[in-house]
Design a protein around this nucleic acid. Sequence first.
RNA 1: GCGAGAGUGGCGGAAUGGCAGACGCGCCAGACUUAGGAUCUGGUGGGUAACUCCGUGGGGGUUCAACUCCCCCCUCUCGCACCA
Length: 819
Amino acid sequence: MEYRPQEMETRWQEYWKANQIFRVNPDSSQPKYYCLEMFPYPSGKIHMGHVRVYSIGDLIARFKTMCGFDLLHPMGWDAFGLPAENAAIEKNLHPSLWTTQNIASMRGQLEKLGLSYDWDREVTTCLPDYYRWNQWLFIKMFERGLAYQKEGSVNWCPSCETVLANEQVVEGECWRCARLVIQKRLTQWFLKITAYAEELLSSLTTLTGWPERVLLMQKNWIGKSSGLELRFPIVGRAESLTIFTTRPDTLFGVTFLCIAPEHPMVPLLIEGTSEREAVLSFIKKAQGQDKTVRTSLTLEKEGIFTGAYGHHPLTDEKIPIFVGNFVLMEYGTGVIMAVPAHDQRDFEFATKYNLPIRIVIAGPTGVPTGAYVDEVGVLVDSGRFTGLAVQEGQKAICKFVEKKGVGQEKIYYRLRDWGISRQRYWGTPIPILYCKQCGIVPVPLSDLPVLLPEDIPFTGKGGSPLSQSPLFANVVCPKCHLAASRETDTMDTFFDSSWYFLRYLSPHETKAPFDSPSAARWLPVDQYIGGVEHAILHLLYARFFTKVICDLGLTNIREPFSNLLTQGMVIKDNAKMSKSKGNVVNPDVLIDQYGADTVRLFSLFAAPPEKDLVWSDDGVQGAFRFLTRVHRMVSRYGGSEMIVPVGGADTLGVGTPIYRMTQRTIKRVTEDIEKFSFNTAIAALMEFYNFLSHEMEHPQTAVPFYKETVRGAMDHLVLLLSPFAPHLGESLWEMLGHPPSISQVAWPSYDPAWVEDETVEVVVQINGRIKAKFNAQAATPDEVLQKRAFDEPKIIAAIAGRPIKKIFVIKGRLINIVL
RNA sequence: GCGAGAGUGGCGGAAUGGCAGACGCGCCAGACUUAGGAUCUGGUGGGUAACUCCGUGGGGGUUCAACUCCCCCCUCUCGCACCA
């Protein structure tokens, strides 16, 4: 019988569907396992990256199912987003229609891969069923002060008259019309993720199942720094400037202050001074610089004296105040104290403008070439703190400053609040009304969902599309019943993906985002799998939402994903597969040619999951050959006349080489899957096949119950292969005379007593170099092995009568004789 | 600049102190065949006629024994980057 994957795969996909094999069993008493892969954006077609991540997830899900877990393995669509809107502009196709069509075709592709999803739980974020709960969550956050409005800057294309996402700004220009993008200040909605900054940071240590580098990226992103906030009174005025420093120990080395050009205190500083005009033109120049230029390290540090002075609260000196292009308004207080002796930037600035450099930490000499920034040394020239070590000095100065009432210790985070307003159509409408009488009014929960209007022309111009619909925008205030207007911005689509894993728990729930008993049963996600490109934003937002939702009393978990696997990219011709590079491989073509099992097997075999996978058409061919060979062996030797009862098979032929090999393979495959070493698990299966096929070509007739032993081995080969190549697994299982479905058969266990070979090859070394080898019974005592070594002619020759210093015996493996 | 990860045959990769190169691809030879881009069998790190010698980015070290542990350096990938 020939291996024809196409017919076989269709047949089993239909069987699984008709028999609801992968539907979650609500009455199960088995331990739960929630296996989740990041859901895709429905762009229209799946690519190899999808094939890879879903193959990994499906393997884990099928393996865990066979291991006796009750599986939740859902799939859905991250269905809001810009491409749909662009398609609408370009092809005059409504985003909802475009998205629905894409989902239908992509679902078909995923089904063709034979993935074990419970499709009854499919979640689609652009449906009102889903996004009404976005609105619900938004209002809950608004009520708690976690959603608020403020002015923020956005990328704005003056010719398209629209806001652009950061990814749409290509080298400072609009991706569509190449017009220079400007920064525009708009009032936007923000989520107060900073309120959770400390917990988002500190609980990273509890995420032991996450890759170290993702934890590190999150840590850096949150960017906690503790230091001292200190007020410098402005000489001759009532106001003062507040600075932030992480090096309070260098306070006595301050020789000037530097303020950001955008700082609101600047006009006050230069009021009526002779420097006013010069400073204003400097500020104008600095603000004209692009944001990325402004913050690049290569930017020449420039500044100008304001004419004003600050009063050093500890030394009572007059300190000149400069405006500096390298000082950022967005971080800290927007003002810095400059200590050129101990900060490289301050040093460069001071050198350029001939400002004094005062050493206050005793370290190595040689200051003129750079600043001494190490936090090692002793304070010098620092008044009453002189002589203290750096660490002590920091503590003492903070304490002194606080006591004196001129400042306090303070913690700053790099993390900013999350601006979620998008001047777009294809997203969740923000459920807020603006009433002249009552101000900002959230839409009453009973009025949700706020539906997206249908009567919108897609021009790509004129700001928020929703404002074009008078029917949508003009409403009556629910409080005072006077005319009010609707918020016409929609939400960032990251909002949608921040909690979709909760919606899977009870996707048809109509009273809440999800029901609590389901949450208690399934949370947290046991294994999350996705691309490392989401290491920061999506995963940070999802963690934030989980904490908020817990604080709303809806769950009792504070971290959503216990274990995270980040898979590498799919590479071809030394580049990531992409349309623009022209190096894409179409999964459909491969599935038509080789079948889904082959494509899946190759994706798992070619590289460890977290590494990049180099695509190889020949490698796919190799995977296909392997499956063909297994198929041929089972159809040739696994005839039903040889049926033995399941469970009975493995008691036959105990101790034979075939039996031992079977046991060893079960162990290897099980352990390799558990540590995500799928490539070596498949290698073990290949070795098992090679061994078996060799055995069958040269049968060892002395083995009792030979046929039955081989049968047991084939049963196990098929079982172990089935989560990697599920369709073939089903067919071969059937061919071996078992009833379907193999996906519900228990994963085999092994007897540790039989995983080792009966005989071992022992290597004999002289001074660490191999001189001889011999075979011995595995259980041979060390002394006997040692004696055997000395009987080897090559060893005798190598020793040549010289005295022996020492002998090392590694049990059952190696003997090293040191001369 | 800071941080993380990686560097092993012609290629993807395996081995976490104990036989370097499992498994696969490719290649070579043979078998079957009208035919082979199908299938099967055997071989395949390099040098050498051979004994053997060399070999895991480079250099040093620890050890009876190092791809593996330690120190220095080089290259590549990713992340962050005037963060006060």
